[in-house]
Amino acid sequence: MSDAAVTTMDRKPMPGMMVYNKKLGMWVFLLSEVMFFTSLIGTYVILRFAHPDHWTDPGVVLNVPLTAVNTFLLICSSVTMVKAFASIQQGNQKGLQMWLLATILIGATFVGVQAIEYNALLGEGFGPVLDLYHAVGRGNPHEGPSLGGPLYGATFYAMTGFHGAHVTIGVFCLIFVYIRSLQGAYTQDSLEGVEVIGLYWHFVDLVWILLFTIVYLI
């Protein structure tokens, strides 16, 4: 039992899932993320059915045009992520770095716009907290009857907030990948890191399309 014998161990595992470990691991992790968002969205669905009076018509409280632009931006960032991966598949280091940087910037912009949106909504009294909720609606002077109810605010901030946290984590991971790409860590034959972070990024994008629809448009 020498240690040298172990290192020469030639791994040809069973032809199972024809994907490498990190990719499979990320898929499996994303499944658990699906369940996490399911718990939040399920909460929203049940509370909204039980208390429809806590919700208003779309666009009365929430700024739909701003978020529509933000949604468009996030979809664009998925495109730039694909371009980054396509670049390294062709061995294009410069392309990889450029498109990664674009993805990072768009992702950061998304989070920034979300922060601005939160700030405006809180200023209009649309918060998550039961005792402080007094939403006056967009563009109204800061008085008037309260629109909707605190469950609207609570579910809104829970769903979009945890999504925003996922985007933020994604941006940090992308920055990590970007720094590694500047060091030339990825090549045509070794691009696992780019692909795996790409999977995560597309997932976060997909979740947002769902959330935008059910939170802002319905």
Binding site: M35, F36, S39, L40, T43, L130, L132, A158
Partner: peptide, 22 residues
């Protein structure tokens, strides 16, 4: 199953700490 619990625990934590009413 665990992410479902995590989601629920987070919402309950908000109810207790910041005063939401899930």
């Amino acid at each position: 199953a665990i992410p479902i619990l995590t989601g629920g625990l987070l919402l309950l934590l908000f109810d207790q700490t910041i005063g939401t009413a899930f």
